[in-house]
Amino acid sequence: MAITDAWLTEKVSQRHITITKYADYLWLLDARGVAYLPACDWLIVSDLHLEKGSYLRSYANPLPSLDSTATLKRLESIIDDYQPLRVISLGDSFHDKHSMSRMTIEDRQHLCRLVDKVKEWMWVEGNHDPDLPEGIPGTPCFEIVLDNMVFRHEPEMSEKRAQVIGHYHPKKRTTVTRRRYSGKCFTNNKNLFVMPAFGQFTGGLDIDEDVMLTLLPKPTRQVFMFCDGIIFKI
């Protein structure tokens, strides 16, 4: 753990970080799209979707193949700040099973160096990446359990424990003092916590869409939206 009280106080006062509680743990929600559990020294990130750009380009979409580079640089900056004991990448870290064959040597080496920076790196399997690509360090797993809380990519509707998931790429639109804002968000109720997507080219699903309202009805949920480096509860 590298964060200090002074650093955290400054980040909270600048609204770069907000603090919440879920499943009896304090969480730091970072406006860069990650969550941190101080009690465990765990950093949580979801839906990197590495090499989505090159995947879309193969289908004639006019996008630059720079998303992996940008995603890894942003993630490295965050890891340097927190210096966590464990990083949990909560599924869909790689956009498809051929991602590594399209990734540049430089990005592949960067990814391996990043994983090696922390003591433990857990790759939770997702629907896009059920198998960890060969040659990538870290530990693949289906889920991670912490007391009465389970980390997995998609929710299990019969689960009695509190769940932390990715998959849905939540986002929200809101109006503040007549100005309209749109951004990714963290959203949760007492049983389910949904992480935002971190990847450079990841879109989002509005939390007021039916599928999200089924998971997190408005009366039960809280929402932390981030935009332009600021995170705020709405």
Rank of each mutant, 00 (worst) to 15 (best):
I19Q: 10
L216S: 03
L66K: 11
P140M: 04
L205N: 09
M103D: 03
S68K: 03
K218R: 07
K184R: 00
P196Y: 04
F142Q: 15
H16F: 14
E209Y: 08
K190I: 10
A6E: 10
R108D: 13
K160T: 08
V176E: 11
L26S: 15
K171S: 03
C112A: 14
D80I: 03
F142H: 15
R86D: 12
E154H: 09
I165Y: 00
T220G: 09
Q200T: 12
A60S: 13
D67N: 09
W27C: 12
Y168K: 02
D24R: 13
T9I: 03
E143Y: 12
H169L: 01
D47E: 05
G183L: 04
L37H: 03
E134Q: 15
C112S: 11
W42H: 10
I231F: 00
S158Y: 03
E120K: 13
F94E: 12
V164P: 00
L213E: 12
D208E: 08
N127E: 02
C141R: 13
P196S: 09
N127M: 02
Y22C: 02
Y59F: 14
L43H: 05
L146S: 14
P38K: 04
T220S: 08
D92I: 07
E51Q: 13
E120T: 14
A197V: 01
T104N: 10
F186N: 02
F198N: 01
T175K: 00
F151A: 12
K52M: 08
T20C: 06
